[in-house]
Computed example of a mutant assay.
Amino acid sequence: MKAYPYPLLKPPSFVWDKSAVPAEPKVNEWIQTLDPTQAEAYDWTRYDVAILGVPLSRSSISASAASENPDALRRAWKYFTTYNLDCDEDLSDLRVVDLGDVRQNVTDIQQCHRNIREAMFHMRTHHPHMMPVSMGGDHSITAMLVKGWNDAHPQERIGILQMDTHFDLRDLTDNGPSNGTPIRNLIESGVVKGEDVHNIGLHGFFNARSLKTYADEVGVRYTTMQQARKRGLEPTVRKALEQLAAKVDTIYVTVDMDVLDISYGPGVPASTPGGMRSDELFEAVYLAGKHPKVKAMDLVCLDPFKDRGEATVKTAVHTMLTFLTGFKQREK
C-alpha cells in the first residue's frame, strides 16, 4: 500500500481553497492540508499539531452517522477565526496540518480498528513531536488510538481524562469493541490501569448499577456533573489532571460529545438532559490543553445528520480550538 504520508491514511475528501490567505485567516485558511504528491518532501519538524479523521460509526450501539463527522467539522472551519477573544490568543502561530482520514473497511469493524491502531502507531513513530487531535467517529476508536500510542511508546504509563455521560465500561463479551466498551477494553487489555482513568460528566439515569460496581472494583475515578458543579468545574478538572499526572507519563483526553446536555448537543445520538453546558466543556478542555502531560485528544460521537443548524458541529470545532488555545499557551 502506498504510504500517505504513511500507511493506512488517505487524504481528506475535500480541501479548502487557500490561494489567497488573508492577514487574519479563518480556521479553514489556517489549517494546512498535505499535497499527496509532495508528502514525502514535507519538513515535518515545522508542524506542532496533527489533525486525524477517524470516520467509523458501524461500532456504535446507537444508530449513528458519526462517520460523517470528520468532514462536517472540516466544513465548519470556515465559521471560525484563529483569534480567541476570551484568552486574547491567536492560534495562527501554531502550525497545524490535516493528515486526512484513517482508511476504513466497508464491513469489517475489526479491520477498521486495526487500521486505526496502526495509523496512530505510525503517527507517533514518524512524527512523535506533534500533538495528535483525532476527529471521530464513535467512541470505540479511542481504545484503538490509545493502543496505537501504547504500541509506539510501550515504556509509558497512560492515563485517560474522559468527558462523558457514560462510563463506557460495558462487558466486552456481549457488547464487543463498541462505543460502549472502549475504557473497559483498555483496562482489560492491560493498556491502562483502572486507577489511571478519571471520568467527568456522569449523571442521571444513563448508567447501569453494574457499571458503577465494575468502576469501583477496578479503581476508576469519576466525578458526576452534580459533584463537579458543587465543587466547581475548574477545580474538579485541575484535581483530576493533578491526580493523573502524579502517576502517569501521558494523559490522553477523550471528549464524548454526549457529555453535553441535550439542549447543547442536539447532534449527539445518545444525547441526554442534565449534562454539561458548552461553556463548561470549553473550560475543561482549555485546562487540559494547558497541562504538560496531556499529549493527545479526540472528539467522538457526533452525528451531523441529526444536528440542528450545525449547533453541535460548531460546538465541537470550538472545543477543538479551545483545547489548542490551552496547548499554545502551554508552549509559551
Rank of each mutant, 00 (worst) to 15 (best):
S60V: 00
S59Q: 08
Q111A: 11
H129P: 00
A65L: 04
F80M: 09
N115Y: 03
S92T: 07
P70D: 15
M130G: 01
I51Y: 04
D86C: 11
D90T: 05
R103T: 12
R74N: 06
A65W: 02
L94I: 06
I116G: 01
G100K: 08
L73A: 02
D108I: 04
V49F: 02
V102T: 05
G136N: 08
D71F: 02
A65R: 05
L85R: 13
M131T: 05
E89C: 06
V133I: 14
S67M: 15
T107F: 13
S92C: 08
P128G: 13
L73S: 01
R114S: 11
G137N: 14
A76D: 12
T125L: 11
S64E: 14
M120Y: 06
R114F: 10
L73N: 02
F121D: 06
A63G: 07
N105E: 12
E118K: 10
Y79R: 14
V106D: 13
W77V: 03
G53R: 07
S62F: 09
I109P: 02
G53P: 00
D71Y: 04
T125Q: 11
L52C: 05
A119H: 02
V97Y: 01
V49D: 03
N105T: 07
R75Y: 02
M123Q: 15
D71C: 05
G136C: 05
R75V: 01
C87P: 02
R124V: 05
M130P: 00
K78V: 10
S57K: 03
E89P: 01
L85V: 05
P128K: 10
M135I: 09
L91W: 00
I51M: 13
I51R: 05
L52D: 06
L94P: 00
S64P: 01
T107Q: 15
A66T: 00
P70T: 13
N105H: 07
F80C: 07
D86A: 14
L85A: 12
D86E: 11
A63T: 07
P70L: 10
L52Y: 04
C87F: 10
E68S: 09
P132Q: 15
H113G: 01
A76V: 04
V133M: 11
A76L: 06
I61R: 10
I61N: 15
S92A: 10
S64T: 06
S92M: 10
D88A: 10
M123F: 09
S62W: 09
H122Y: 13
N115G: 04
A66I: 01
L99E: 07
A72N: 03
P132L: 13
Q111V: 08
S57V: 00
